[in-house]
Structures are given as structure tokens and as C-alpha cells.
Amino acid sequence: MSRQRKATPSARIGMLTYHALMLAISAVFLLPFYWMTISAFKTNAEIFSNPVTWLPDPIRWENMTSLLTREDFPFVQQFVNSVFYAGTVAVLVCLSCSLAAYSFGCLRWRGRNLVFGLTVCALLMPTIVTFLPIYLAWSKIGLTGTYWPLITPFLFGDAFFIFMLRQFFMGVPRELLDAARLDGASEFRIWWQIVMPQLRTPLIIVGLFATVYTWNEFFLPLIYLQDREAFPLSVGLFTFQSQRAVEWSVSMMGAFLTALPMVALFLLTQRLFQRGLSSTGLK
């Protein structure tokens, strides 16, 4: 808007201060990430050398091969586990939460607000509180040590994502649903064929949130899984670090490669995040 006009001196100073402040704040967040990245390409000695080297020289690519070929750290297997875990949860969350959100946001039924209120209350319930009885139940049916206890709950939705999606479902014009009802579509069909295509952007964003969240999920896999071969990366990295505390460069390479897909995913979908949450693709 005002880009054409010349900024007044005071406005320019304001902009400068703003950008300086923003740079400082992002530095605080980016520094650990940068530290992890450069450490991944150094030897142990170089990581702790004094004075600090801000760029690895030479770049130790061999850290990567040594990580990927280690017997005591099945990185590739754990990476596949993480992809499976996060991917399945993301898909299930999108399906189950959007069904629930359709009901809360698009249908009118007695007690709807009460049930929705209870669902939101579930948000306030810490995992720690409910995990013991649930763990005992899973262990009774003998499914601990598998991904079933980690994935099945998402078949039934997740309070946070239901809450988030409901807003978007409420934004779908009522007449669109009415038109489909007059056309003879069942509620299930309206959900799938009429409403879901309108909400592609919010659904992708929910899927991404769920992916990142699950990728980083630590507590539940730690509790339910026993074998190193079954761990997702979050747990795998932690166990490796606690057992091989001295091998910093391999740990850092592992951490770097674990963070990389999420960073890439974010960069690829950044534009969606920026415009997505405000506009739902509906006119």
C-alpha cells in the first residue's frame, strides 16, 4: 500500500527497530537448531573445541554413513516406523475429526452443545491422568509392544482437532447442505462429497499438525513399545543418547535427520499456513 510513498524518518526508525527485534527473537529460536545442524557435521572433538567454530570444516559427511550403518541404532527402521506412525495418525485424525466436526458444525441435534462441551473438556484432561487404566486395558488384550494402542485412539477423534475443524465446518453455507439434501444425498455422502472438498486447506493443515505432533510424540511410544526395532525416532534418539552419551556427533546427525523432514514439510506448505487458516477456499 504505502510502499510507493517515501517513508518518513520516524517510520523508518520504527521499521528498523521492529526488524532488529524480530531478528533477535528468531536468533534465540534458531540458534539451538543451527548448533544441532553444525554439530551433526563435526567430530566429537570439534564440537567441543575452544574457540567455537561456527562452520564445520571439513564437513564430516562420514557421520551420516556411520549413523545409517550402526548395529546399535536402527535409524532407517525407526525412520520408517515414524513415517508410518505419523502418517496413519494424520489420516485417521483427518477422517474421524472431520466426521465429528461435521456433526458438531453442520447438523442440528438435541444435546449437541453439551456433547461438544464435554469433548472440549477432554482437551483439559492430561494424558498422564488416563494413561494408567488405558495401559492396563491394552496390556490385558496383549497388544502392548505394538502400534495398536498408539493409533487406535485416533479412530475416535481428537478433541483439539475436532475443536479446530468445527469452526471451518460451521463456515460452510447451510444452503449447500440443504441443496444436497434436496438432491437426495445421505448425510455421509454430503460430508464426503460436498463438505470435505470445500475444506481441503484446513484438512491439510490439520493433517500437518497431526503429523508434526505425532512425529515428536515421546511419552506414549516410550510406554507402550519395548523393542528398539519398533521405536519411532523420538524414542529411538532418546535411548541412543542415554546409552551412548559420548557420541555427540552421531546423536546430532540423528537429531538433524529427524528434524529435517518436518522442516522440509513446513517449508513446502508454508504458503498454505499463511493464507490457509483465514480463508477456507469458500467464496
Binding site: 444452503e175 449447500l176 440443504d178 434436496l182 437426495g184 444425498a185
Partner: peptide
Amino acid sequence: PPAQRGVAMVFQNYA
């Protein structure tokens, strides 16, 4: 149900 009434509707916002 709406579809079995033999009615069709045109909405203000076209829908």
C-alpha cells in the same frame, strides 16, 4: 425426507 417430496429449491446465494 426432502428428496422424496418432489420439491426443488433455488436459494438466494445459489448454493
